[in-house]
Write a protein that binds this DNA or RNA. Sequence first.
DNA 1: GATGAATGAGTGTTCATTCAT
DNA 2: TATGAATGAACACTCATTCAT
Lengths: 194, 194, 194, 194
Amino acid sequence: MSPRSAAKNEEIRRETIRKIMDSAFLLISKQGYESTSIAQIAKEADISKGLLYNYFKSKEDLLENLIKAALVQGDQIMSSILTEDPATTLENLFRWFFKELRERPDYWRMINELAFKADKFKFVQDIAVEKWTGYTNLLQKLFEQMGFENSAEEAMIAAALFDGIGIQSVVLKKDYPLSELERILIDKYCKRKK
Amino acid sequence: MSPRSAAKNEEIRRETIRKIMDSAFLLISKQGYESTSIAQIAKEADISKGLLYNYFKSKEDLLENLIKAALVQGDQIMSSILTEDPATTLENLFRWFFKELRERPDYWRMINELAFKADKFKFVQDIAVEKWTGYTNLLQKLFEQMGFENSAEEAMIAAALFDGIGIQSVVLKKDYPLSELERILIDKYCKRKK
Amino acid sequence: MSPRSAAKNEEIRRETIRKIMDSAFLLISKQGYESTSIAQIAKEADISKGLLYNYFKSKEDLLENLIKAALVQGDQIMSSILTEDPATTLENLFRWFFKELRERPDYWRMINELAFKADKFKFVQDIAVEKWTGYTNLLQKLFEQMGFENSAEEAMIAAALFDGIGIQSVVLKKDYPLSELERILIDKYCKRKK
Amino acid sequence: MSPRSAAKNEEIRRETIRKIMDSAFLLISKQGYESTSIAQIAKEADISKGLLYNYFKSKEDLLENLIKAALVQGDQIMSSILTEDPATTLENLFRWFFKELRERPDYWRMINELAFKADKFKFVQDIAVEKWTGYTNLLQKLFEQMGFENSAEEAMIAAALFDGIGIQSVVLKKDYPLSELERILIDKYCKRKK
DNA sequence: GATGAATGAGTGTTCATTCAT
DNA sequence: TATGAATGAACACTCATTCAT
């Protein structure tokens, strides 16, 4: 019974958590939250159900962690998009967003699906408000730098546009003219002569 | 010779169906589809579970009827909005939409939640495509009459805006500046000098 | 409210009972007793569920009447098989039995399935004993007239043979050499030189 | 390091499976398949319904396992019956069969009842064909060794006899002259001078 | 840290039967 | 005689969660 060092233990913990969250994300983003069982997640992660409960105190808790991690990831990507030129930054933002919708539709499906669980899971509402405020502020700053009048209003409109395109893309799938909208929006917001 | 007149029976049936659908709508729009059980709906409607299955052949069938009824209602309201002047029609449309979001947020919650069940319920995808096409066409026609260039592109953008505002309003609730957006959009789309 | 004559009423009753029993027989012989619902039977008979309960006090009661009627039918056919010559009668009996298995396998399926409900439905046991005694007696008489030694023993064997062939034919279906057995048995029992 | 040794777990599993199958056998053989509920079986086995589904994926799956286990048992006994002398083997076979009908009528009730579920459960038909072929072949070989002419035909007749006696014994119970038939058949098939 | 056997309240659904009309 | 809306107990099955080891 050699005692495992604390460091080693910590590493095992981190690795197990990662496996659980990866598996949970994979399954929930594809099948939805209610249709994904703890048993499935544990199996996909190749651990026991009991162990999962060592790390997350409930299915809801796992979901909360999942969402927060996903959004942190989003923030990191976002920060890599910033440039000195606001128009370029905005264009990067658009391109990143459309690329995401094309490449990880499941992720956006999940985010949106979750948004409607606000009544059930209190943490959703808080996160949503925070995110909306963050994105709106960023957009406003960019619009201001680009010389738009009413940058605050334009930011709110643009924020709604992002969400609307996201939801429509996820629902309509192949029937949605995603690339056309990308072109239109970049033209409209980034290329225009002021 | 009939034991209960056909007309009386028909009335009973209609009334029971109404009770079921009202209860189902109330609960599903508030709690979501998966979180609402048949037992709850029957209890709310003050009937037995068995009777519910006299009228709807499954939970999914009930949902489908619910959605279709809701959308028919939506279509009727929509047609009452049309006027001779495109700008007025558009303004009516905006005002109706924002009024709805304020007065029946649960309804929009449900519609949006359902949109994400397209993978599970095949009828959803079909309805979504049909609705999106319908609204986009209407918007395009209005924009064209109002003298917008690129009416098709503007229609797609506006359609996304509606959905985006809808989802943000539903999720952020009191934290969402719904009235401000209403003013902004009406100004932007309906009042502008061409 | 012209009063219907008693005779007319009686005719209606008989006709309704016939419709119910025909429908029940059709469905139960095909699907089995447990898998056939009262609702199905009523629909097939084109009457209401309630009316069915005017004539039969339960599903079990309907089954009992069904079986008894079917067996009466069997008796009638049986009596038409009797001739002056015992060997011819026996051959007729064999030919009738194999013809039945070929043409109405569902009927024999039902009879056999029912036999196993003896523990559940007390009337089954009584009928079975009565039928077995009747057939065994008939066979014994024929064998005796044909000059078999131990006619009683041969009768019991032959009775078991009938049942065994019936069950094997019903279960194995196309895989069972029904016609071959017909030839073998007629040869063995009816054609032999004494 | 495992929390409960794999061997211990395996033992627990085997014991629980045994309890479930014993209980299921007891109830189904007595009451029939459709009339026995999962709840009853779980209660008889003194476990929760949920646990039953840890071991069998459906009621039908449980039945299939039950049948297969029963038939394996049958095969083992069968092989212990074979001797060098065909007449002795045949006599052993008869004696074993009649002993079974006397001592485990419920078992034969279940086997026979199941035979009629071939339309519902596909595995039944396959098993039935296999078993019938197996027994018929064995009988033919014995008859051949004993010098019967037409051993193939006699085998088919004997196979039907076994089934017929089985079904009549199960249905007629105390009213069926089982011991008399045992004597008659052994006399007829095993003691005769060739 | 790790397991998985076990639970129990829950799910959607079926159906024989009743009864007001 | 005839209807069919209504019931309620039962059904097979699921799953988040616990806990002895």
